[in-house]
Amino acid sequence: MSEHTVSSYDEELSGIAGRIAEMGGLAESIVTDAVTALITQDLDLAQATIGRDHRLDDLMHDIEMRNVLVIARRQPMGQDLREIMAATRIANDLERVGDMAKNVAKRVIAIDSDLKSKTLAIGVEHMTELALAQLKAVLDAYTRKDAEEAVKVRERDAEIDAIYTSLFRELLTYMMEDPRNITQCAHLLFCAKNIERIGDHATNIAENVYYMVTGKRLLDDRPRMDETGVEDKENA
């Protein structure tokens, strides 16, 4: 879009978009570190990752504050208004992504033993790769204001859900085979759930990007199914 008559208004908006980008990069890196710490059982890395989550909280509050000020000063309309709304919600989702990663990092410390079977962790690692790719794609879509890409991200979330469901079954099988696996598998299960939630946040962001760009809501026609096998059309 072209520039505002008042140039400081443009600066305020680009300042907010810049902080979303910063949050996005940080969230990606925290997720990567948390899962690396999990796979390699690196307690120091896990501890450091937990500490870095604060920065995401700070950025989110900063974005909120800036949005409030822009609303008060400029009474944004149209595309600008949608950008402000989207930024607030996307910042929230990214902050939650940080929380999910932090949960994984905390588990690393709680497990505090070598993973007996690396193969168990590989499933989680694979999910994480997909979730990170989703996060990256949706942040690109945000920066480029690309509604089509946002739609694609949203559609791809089903893949993560499917992997999570199969991982869930796999871990259950291990637990039944040998009760000594239970503790570790339970931890991994929680980690997997957290990663799956990161995918959901990427989907939320995609929906907000779509609204920001087009002014229209994506209709939720995707049936959801989680590991319980119960279809949930309400709580997408």
Partner: peptide, 9 residues
Amino acid sequence: TQDYITGRF
């Protein structure tokens, strides 16, 4: 319309 209401005129 977009340009006008968003102050880009």
